[in-house]
Computed example of a mutant assay.
Amino acid sequence: MNDSITFSNKKIDFIIGYERYDEISTLYIRFWQENELFNIGWIAFVRGEKSEEGQSKLDNITHLLDYIEKNYAEITNFQFCQESRKMIEDFMNK
């Protein structure tokens, strides 16, 4: 990503990334101790909380921030993110 905004509590980071001249944006969570990064957009998608339809980069980030707010306990759980990664891999291999 060309530009990003990071929110951190020294255990996890939420990274909002966007392309300056494109309508591309995403949101990641990074777990410091495990040194792992997960794409929240994909997690929301495979968990049935986000459609494949295109959105503007601001709408996409707003939707993902709402998803984090509603599912904070799950999103900040490393095992949940690992399970979601497996679901993403299964989806991509269909």
Rank of each mutant, 00 (worst) to 15 (best):
M1K: 08
D3S: 14
I5L: 15
T6N: 01
F7K: 10
S8W: 03
N9H: 01
D13K: 06
I15W: 07
I15F: 05
I16E: 00
I16C: 03
E19L: 11
E19P: 00
E19R: 12
Y21I: 10
S25P: 01
S25K: 04
T26F: 10
L27C: 04
Y28E: 09
R30L: 11
Q33R: 15
Q33F: 13
Q33P: 06
N35V: 03
N35H: 07
N35G: 03
E36I: 04
E36D: 11
E36S: 11
E36H: 02
L37Y: 11
L37W: 10
F38V: 01
N39R: 06
I40S: 00
G41Y: 00
F45I: 00
V46K: 03
E49N: 14
E49Y: 14
E52C: 08
G54M: 09
Q55L: 15
S56D: 10
K57E: 04
D59W: 02
D59L: 05
D59V: 01
N60Y: 09
N60K: 09
I61T: 08
H63F: 07
L65S: 04
D66V: 07
K70L: 13
K70F: 12
I75Q: 03
I75N: 04
Q79V: 14
C81V: 01
Q82L: 14
R85D: 14
K86N: 11
I88V: 12
E89M: 10
D90C: 05
D90H: 04
M92P: 04
N93R: 12
